[in-house]
Simulated assay, not measured.
Amino acid sequence: MPELKTPDSLETQSCQVILSVLYQLNLNHENNVAMSSERRQFILDCLQPSLRQRLISMITYSLNQDLNVTCKLLDYLFDSGIPHLDLITRRFSSFYFPADQVPTVYRLLSRGDPTSLEKLCIGIHLDHSEEGDWEDEEKETICWYSGVKRKEESVSKVLVYNSYFYPTLEKMKKLRHVVLHGVCDNQALSIIGQSCNLLQYLDITGSSDVTDVGIQNLVFPPAIQKAGRVNLVNTRARTNPSMKHICTVLARDTGVDVTGCIILLQFCPRQWI
Rank of each mutant, 00 (worst) to 15 (best):
R91E: 15
S94W: 07
A99S: 14
Q101A: 07
V105C: 10
L108Y: 00
L109E: 03
L109P: 05
S110K: 11
S110T: 15
R111Y: 09
R111L: 12
G112P: 08
L117C: 05
K119W: 04
G123P: 03
I124V: 14
H125V: 11
D127S: 06
H128S: 11
G132C: 02
G132I: 00
W134Q: 09
E135H: 11
E138K: 05
E138G: 10
W144H: 13
Y145P: 00
G147D: 03
K149M: 11
R150C: 09
K151L: 10
E152K: 12
E152T: 13
K157Y: 08
K157L: 14
N162G: 05
Y166V: 14
P167N: 04
T168P: 08
E170K: 11
K171Y: 04
K171C: 08
K173T: 15
K173C: 13
R176K: 12
R176T: 13
R176C: 09
H177G: 02
V178S: 03
V178E: 07
G182P: 10
V183L: 07
C184T: 10
D185W: 03
A188L: 13
I192V: 10
G193W: 00
G193C: 03
S195M: 12
S195Q: 14
C196P: 03
N197Y: 11
L198W: 06
L199Y: 02
Y201S: 03
T205P: 01
S208A: 14
T211C: 05
D212N: 07
V213L: 14
G214L: 03
I215D: 05
I215L: 03
Q216Y: 04
N217A: 08
L218W: 00
L218V: 03
F220P: 02
P221W: 00
P222N: 08
